[in-house]
Amino acid sequence: MKISDFWEKYYRQVLYTLMIALTVFVFVNPIGLPLVVMKNSIDYYEAVESLPPHSIVTVGVNYGGGAWGEVGSANIAFIKHCIMKDLRMVFYSRYVEGPLMLEKVIAGAGGKEALGEYGVDWVNLGYMAGGEAALASMMQSPDGWHKTFEYDQYRNKVSDLLLMEDLWDWQDVDLATEFITGSLLPVVNQWYVPYRTPIICSAIGANTPETKMYYDAGQVVGYLGSMRGSAEYEKLTGFYADALSSVEALSLVLFLAAISIIVGNIEDRWKGSKNISTGGR
């Protein structure tokens, strides 16, 4: 079989094998590529850093297993950052898998004991259906959070939790943090537009351009874009999870992808293919 025929038949397998080989190589032998921290990540970090102790931070865990590589590390580093700053955390989720991911995040941050006393230092309100309507309901005066959540994730009555005595409506939220796979628009709509609640966000790659749009307009204080943003935040906080080591592999694999696109285009031009306008194979 000629090389060109082999490539034509097995290009997918070859590319994936190269990707796996590159990734494993970087994990076994870290290269130490430099990582520049962008302004949006610094703003994200500063938003947490500037809060006084005992401030209330709401943490929206709105992603599933598929987004773990992109925002999971940032979520772990964020919780450790909040613990260091002695902030009080209120977790909730608009995503069905969110509570499951939160258990994984808490385990990564050192377990429930590391977060402090439940009900005093942190609360897990669990999943809430209703999307944007539920978000609007949470912030309403005088007792939106209590009306929206009757029980927490562990079947405790929300009104019995000490922390929740300080969280009733929009005036009590010092910082809203979102870890998202979907759009940030509902949160901007219902929390920033009416109440000017400061929002920071960690988004997956697909939502990063949209999140940047809100950041440029001043609707979001800071944001972390995908795995790279998570790595930058790990570097800023010094709480290392997986992002900083994974982002090296990401750089190499994306470099491979860029080379493949260029080589593929040259090959198609060389052959005078008529299928150029139809896109990739």
Binding site: A206, P209, M227
Partner: peptide, 28 residues
């Protein structure tokens, strides 16, 4: 730019799973 970001996200997923496999089988 959006497509490039989506692609980055998909590659991130892939890398995270490779890391998981490496850890599970004691490679790293």
């Amino acid at each position: 730019a959006s497509y490039a970001n989506v692609m980055t996200g998909r590659v991130s997923m892939f890398i995270e799973r490779i890391l998981f496999l490496c850890r599970t089988f004691g490679i790293v």
